[in-house]
Write a protein that binds this DNA or RNA. Structure first.
Lengths: 198, 198
DNA sequence: GGTTTACGGTACGCACAAGTTTCGATACTG
DNA sequence: CAGTATCGAAACTTGTGCGTACCGTAAACC
C-alpha cells in the first residue's frame, strides 16, 4: 500500500477497464482482420475508447499488438495418458477444439507471415504462437522417449517439425479447411513411427 | 493472317510491350511487397505505364495479379537420377537455387495466406505455387514406388505433405532463414523412410 | 478546493491509393 | 486521309487511416 501510494504519479490513474477493452478489441480484430488489416481506428471503435487513450499507451500499431499478444497466456496444460500416442491425440484435440473454424486455424500462419519484417512483433508472435506449443510437445516427446516409445537418440526438434509441419502445411494450402485434423495428425504420427521402407 | 486481320477491331492495337511491362512489374512487386502490399499505383510507376492502360486490361488488383501469375510458366523439368533419393535431392536443389533469399523462400506462404478470402486469386496461387510442384513430386514418388523404393500401398498425397510440410513449416517459423535447405529436406526424407520405432 | 492527469469524443491536416477523366500524340484500318 | 482506339502522363474526386490537438468531464492527489 505504502509503496503503491508513494510511487503513484499525480493526476487521474489510467483506467484498467480501458486497458482490458483495448487488449480485447485488438485480439478480436487480429483474428478477424490479421495484422496488416488491423487499424487503430477500428480498435478505438470496438473498444469504445478515445484515440488518445490508445496513443497514450502505445506509440504505434506494433507496440499495441505486441502488448495484446503478451496478455495472451494460453494455459496449455499437458495431458498425461500414459502413452505418447494418447498424449499427442489429446494435445491435437484440445488445440483444435480452441480453433474450430478455418479462419481461426489459419491465424497462426497468417499472423506470423504478416509480421515478417517487423522484428520485435515477429518475435512476440513466434514466442506466443509457436514456441509455447513446441515446448509442450517437446516435454511429451521426451517422456515418450524415456518410456522407450521412440528410437533412442531421436532428434526431438526435427520430430516436432515432422509432426506439426504436415498439418500446418495442409491448413495453408487448403485455406484452413480439414475434415478431421486429429485423425490426420495421428495418421502422420503413425506413418512417422512405422517408416516407409518396403 | 486472314483471321487476324478480319478479327482485329479498329483503332490502335494494345501494346504488347505494355502487357509485358505490367506483368513483369506485378510479379516483382508481388515478391517485394506481397499481395496485400501491392498497389496499382506502384505497378504503374514501375512499369512506366499510364494508369488507364492498366485499368483498360484489368478491372481490379485481383484480376491483375491473377493474370500475371498465370503468365508464370515455371518450366519445372523433372530429374531422373535413377533413385528416388537422388531425384528428390535434385528437385530441392533446383527449387532453392531459384529462391536463394529468405523473402523469396517465404513468397509461397505469404501469397497463399494473403489471398485467403479472395477465392479466385487463391485458386490461381494454389495452382501455380502448389499444385504444379506437387504434380512433379507425385511423378517422382510414383516412379520410386514402382522401383520398389517405397512400401507398396504408400499414400503418395500424404507422403508429399510429410516431405514438404516440415520444410515449409520451418521456413515459416524462421522467417525464411535456413542454413542448408537441401540437407534438411534429405534429413526429413531419410527419417521418413527409416521410421522412429525403437 | 486547487492541481494534475486521464477519460470518451471529435475535428483536423497529412499522406496515399482507388478509380475516373482529360490531354495531345500515336498506330492501325479502310 | 478520315476514323478509331490505344498510348503515357497528369489532374481530379473520393475514401481511409495516421497521428495530433482540443473539448468538457471525471478521478485521483495535496
Amino acid at each position: 500500500m505504502t509503496a503503491e501510494t508513494a510511487s503513484r504519479p499525480p493526476g487521474r490513474p489510467r483506467s484498467a477497464e480501458a486497458d482490458a477493452a483495448i487488449a480485447g478489441a485488438t485480439l478480436e480484430l487480429l483474428v478477424e482482420e490479421g495484422f496488416q488489416g488491423l487499424s487503430i481506428e477500428a480498435v478505438r471503435r470496438r473498444a469504445g475508447v478515445g484515440k488518445a487513450t490508445i496513443y497514450r499507451r502505445f506509440p504505434d500499431k506494433s507496440a499495441l499488438v505486441r502488448a495484446a499478444m503478451e496478455h495472451l497466456h494460453a494455459s496449455l496444460e499437458l495431458p498425461d495418458t500414459g502413452t505418447l500416442r494418447g498424449d499427442l491425440e489429446a494435445v491435437w484435440r484440445s488445440a483444435y477444439a480452441s480453433a474450430p473454424s478455418a479462419p481461426q486455424r489459419l491465424m497462426l500462419v497468417r499472423l506470423l507471415i504478416e509480421a515478417v519484417g517487423d522484428e520485435k512483433t515477429f518475435a512476440v508472435f513466434r514466442e506466443t504462437l509457436v514456441e509455447r506449443r513446441r515446448t509442450g510437445l517437446r516435454e511429451l516427446l521426451q517422456r515418450g522417449l524415456e518410456r522407450g516409445e521412440l528410437r533412442p537418440g531421436t532428434d526431438l526438434e526435427l520430430l516436432i517439425d515432422l509432426l506439426a509441419g504436415p498439418i500446418i502445411y495442409r491448413f495453408l494450402i487448403d485455406a484452413g479447411e480439414m475434415e478431421d485434423p486429429v485423425a490426420r495428425a495421428m495418421q502422420v504420427y503413425d506413418t512417422l513411427l512405422e517408416g516407409l521402407k518396403p
